[in-house]
Write a protein that binds this DNA or RNA. Sequence first.
DNA 1: GATGAATGAGTTTTCATTCAT
DNA 2: CATGAATGAAAACTCATTCAT
Lengths: 198, 198, 198, 198
Amino acid sequence: MDKVSKHAQKSNESYQRLMDAAFKVFGQYGYEKASIDLLAKEAGYTKGTFYLHFKSKEDFFLEFMDHKLSVYKQNFLPLLNSNTTFESIISQGINIFYKLSNEDNWIPLFFEFCSIAVRNENVKERMSIYYREWFKLICMVLEKGKQANKLSANLDLDITSRKIVAVLDGYNLQNSFVSNGYSLDEVEQLIKQILELD
Amino acid sequence: MDKVSKHAQKSNESYQRLMDAAFKVFGQYGYEKASIDLLAKEAGYTKGTFYLHFKSKEDFFLEFMDHKLSVYKQNFLPLLNSNTTFESIISQGINIFYKLSNEDNWIPLFFEFCSIAVRNENVKERMSIYYREWFKLICMVLEKGKQANKLSANLDLDITSRKIVAVLDGYNLQNSFVSNGYSLDEVEQLIKQILELD
Amino acid sequence: MDKVSKHAQKSNESYQRLMDAAFKVFGQYGYEKASIDLLAKEAGYTKGTFYLHFKSKEDFFLEFMDHKLSVYKQNFLPLLNSNTTFESIISQGINIFYKLSNEDNWIPLFFEFCSIAVRNENVKERMSIYYREWFKLICMVLEKGKQANKLSANLDLDITSRKIVAVLDGYNLQNSFVSNGYSLDEVEQLIKQILELD
Amino acid sequence: MDKVSKHAQKSNESYQRLMDAAFKVFGQYGYEKASIDLLAKEAGYTKGTFYLHFKSKEDFFLEFMDHKLSVYKQNFLPLLNSNTTFESIISQGINIFYKLSNEDNWIPLFFEFCSIAVRNENVKERMSIYYREWFKLICMVLEKGKQANKLSANLDLDITSRKIVAVLDGYNLQNSFVSNGYSLDEVEQLIKQILELD
DNA sequence: GATGAATGAGTTTTCATTCAT
DNA sequence: CATGAATGAAAACTCATTCAT
């Protein structure tokens, strides 16, 4: 293994470890209270290493956000190639959503994204992209439902996807603060009602 | 007069001015970046005066949150005594929600509440209370629908109120980041679908 | 003594002490290595107090420069109202210059001003003003020489004042690095040669 | 090969490139703000290479100073072997001085040397040597004037050379901050006055 | 020779909080 | 009631230097 690749490998490792640490630290402390010091220490490095990779805290946050939202969405891609029934795909989708939502730090992180986005155009832009991709992905899944004659040909997929996202976001919000809020079963039931599947 | 009894002084002018300033400053800068200096100056006072009324920034934030959420809910109380048709009450409610949501700083502030709540038990407790009261209020409205035979007697009001809140929250979230998201009409249509009014 | 004046008095005192500390600290360490920490400590305060009075290090430096250059020039004002012979006024002026130049920290500070001025437009602007006032003052003194028929009516005072300043600056520069450089007597002799007094 | 013998390696390409970079970078940013990173990059290398050649930033600066001042003086050596009239040699010297002074970065660098010298004995020592050599060189030129009977045999060359250097330094200082300061012609006129040539 | 990852001490700046007036 | 001077802890960011490759 030559010099170059050894250096590159080390660089990659520290980059990755900083990203991983960010998930934990930004989730746990929020953007403002997550210090670079803590972030770096959590990754097993010192501040200096952080600035070797990123030129500022905001820069890093943006990059981390891109990374995190991209990974988040990839979890849903298998739905597009699934061979099971449409109803089953819907259920699976909800389950994946549920699993991801319960990952430590994801919900706090998501609120952080929202909270910063309303004041920072760069972050807002990323949220916007994230939502659009979200809608598109759901539209693609719903399209399969139409092709399988499970959904009415009249159903406006754009609007429907937006409704579904609203219901899921609303569910997460509510469950963060109210124990014994409504259950996943009820989410599924509501989504099926929106899809006129029942 | 000790700090605790300060809660009783809500009629004070300085108290009110600080609350108003908080709505603006916390909304615009977020909790962490809103300095006491700025807060006090916005209210027309200096730091010293702030500490005359509140023992810490967190304390103040908590009291402000109580104040703000309480004022927020009061906007919906007229719905309970309204004499119009049930459908009209629903429409009115959605309109009030829409108007409040578009008030400057409300959405940023709400995200701030969420973002802090997931990490701070005191704030979380308040969010929890807020949501419960929200549910209760909607239940009371829906009860009128049942009495007017507009809603099925079988409809589980607890679950239904939760669904409605989710839809409204989800709508706000989405509209904060995606222009041309779904419209108020669609919200109303979806809520009516949930209520099986159509 | 009322509250206001007590507060104002304290404020004045800390401002003054910070200015005094600056003369010592900037002179001793130079702008870059003079930390706010040290500056404040030298004045008997902490960093926070510094930022109560000045919004940044650069801002402070500019204000300090104004202050210092203004005080510097005031030392020469008595020359304008002196009643002695023109030759004596010239000698006195050179002596004042000599005394000020040998004040601890003045020369280092002056080099600092020069060194920063070439890279910072704000500082350069101040240096430019300083020099122009310098020229003007010398012109006024020389004018007295003309009125007393000690100087040729043909002498161009603008050019002459510039030459004198150059000789004095050059003297200071040289004496900072070379011991046994040329003496004050020689400066006086050279200036008299420029003035065609000999 | 130890660090000390590095002085002998002045023919190295990397050495030369670092020296050239230093002229630019120290001139542009000043000693404190010129980072090794930038210095190395400007020379086409990386930090590591820098430390291969020099043991510290200060060390490098000292060596750079030696190098630069030595190159500076070499520009005047042709004057010693010139065959033209004494007056013409004087004019040539002033012109060389003028040309060098207007080289980008030279004046800022010179102020940097001064500014550091008053606080650093090593740097001061080099400035002292520089000035002494300067005086010596001028004395040698003036000696030619004496031999050609252009200068009075009574003229004290040591003192005269000091005066000339002061005038030149003063000219540079003044022209750095005041546009429309006195002109080269006036410098020449003043120097001739000092030499009693007029 | 040359690279660049990693460090850690140091720098400017902000800000919640206290307290004498 | 109200002020504002003073504090000190903590934050983002910089940079000379080292060293494994």
